[in-house]
Design a protein around this nucleic acid. Structure first.
Lengths: 234, 234
DNA sequence: CCAAAAGTGTTGTTTTTACACCCATGT
DNA sequence: ACATGGGTGTAAAAACAACACTTTTGG
């Protein structure tokens, strides 16, 4: 605001209800998934929706969204970023509410869905999203496009994969995000050429008899990789 | 919002002042510029700021921002897009205000600054931005990064250049956005390879004795170009 | 011993970069 | 006739895409 008005003038301005809604992505080594919630109360009882909350006087939007995810999962240092606003005047049948959608990437195994049973939460594969209330489907579609774009220049794997992961897993993650098959030789070649992975001497044998070596992201190398302006097209 | 609450529950929620602030870019054939406003009233009289407005009960954020630009310039079908929210609790010294920044690209010659003299507006080169109130400098920096990113996959020239323009002008625009010199042969080769420009038989002689051919964007070709998933890296 | 996934190299094609000269014209 | 910016082509390097076989080991 340009502050054309002094404080007195603010008094004449309409105030509006603000909410945050969270699009929570997870990855379980096989599929990219989205956390959705079944409404337990009328109206719209039984419909699926995103989780959200009204924004309090004393929280920034980002903090409000963090609080939503934290209350739900107990997780604190999660990746969470603003998507965009949804502000159609009549979008909420109750009263005018402007919603600021945020999306979050979490490791699906870092918390137990049982512990959030009260919310009636469920993970959905991103190509099997049910009907959602109001404009939540639009939010989800926008968020999927966003992470697809984002994956091109930032290593989204950091947030979605456990500390140690195999290259085949990383590839599956990218295949889920882009929704297409990648060539395994070219993928490995390219990702290793970035020099942002550190090989451990451990193997994950859950996926095959032979076992695949576990790698870690190397944050220092990665930071300088980004700051030099490279990007991550795959 | 998940509508966990029924309408009655909405009543207990805090409402907040919402504003839109507009980062208005223009291009005058030589420089990328930003439109800023000098406050005429206390507090912060004499400081430069973006232009903005509080959001009305019955306007979406996007429409509110369009109205701001339209009131200022008289222009209606302008390019305008959401940037992001700024919601620190104490950002506005007057009272809590959440601002949703929008950025806009306009043809600098489509309107006359004289006609907006009452706002005390001025175009600034983007590398000569003065100090701005509150977090407006942050908004501007974020907006510049955004258009730099956006220019990679969308033809921003459409919005910033007049209907007919020369290839040297288009190149200067990209050089302003990226803030670096581009090779003229490679630029021309690449931009023409996209097949989204139509050559006219007119020449613009304002830049040289020889004159440079004027081109137009071809919207149909461009639309299919985008929808095929190509992008615009230069 | 075999099924199943992990891992490894090469080659042809495309894209990108770097680079230098002639052209048209107004003064 | 000359100064000024407009316009053109080519070659070397780099990046990308396509492709098939060997390795390991649990069952």
């Amino acid at each position: 605001m340009q502050l054309l008005n002094n404080k007195k003038a603010y008094k004449n301005q309409a105030k509006i209800l603000i909410a945050v809604d969270c699009i929570i992505f997870g990855f379980d080594s096989e599929e990219l998934k989205l956390l959705l919630f079944k409404r337990k109360v009328a109206p719209l009882k039984g419909s699926w929706s995103l989780i959200g909350a009204f924004v309090d006087e004393n929280l920034s939007l980002n903090n409000a969204a963090k609080q939503v995810v934290s209350n739900l999962t107990g997780l604190n240092n999660i990746f969470l970023e603003e998507l965009q606003t949804y502000s159609d005047v009549d979008r909420d049948p109750g009263e005018r509410v402007i919603s600021v959608a945020h999306y979050s990437l979490i490791r699906i195994n870092d918390f137990d869905l049982d512990s959030v049973e009260k919310y009636d939460a469920r993970w959905f594969k991103i190509d099997e999203i049910p009907e959602l209330i109001i404009d939540h489907k639009q939010m989800v579609d926008d968020a999927i496009l966003k992470i697809r774009k984002k994956a091109r220049y930032q290593p989204i794997g950091f947030e979605l994969l456990p500390e140690k992961f195999t290259i085949p897993h990383l590839q599956i993650l990218y295949e889920c995000i882009y929704q297409k098959k990648l060539d395994d030789r070219n993928f490995r070649k390219k990702i290793l050429s970035f020099n942002i992975l550190t090989k451990t001497d451990e193997k994950d044998k859950s996926g095959s008899k032979k076992g695949a070596f576990l790698y870690k992201f190397n944050k220092e190398k990665f930071t300088s990789f980004i700051s030099k302006g490279y990007n991550f097209e795959l």
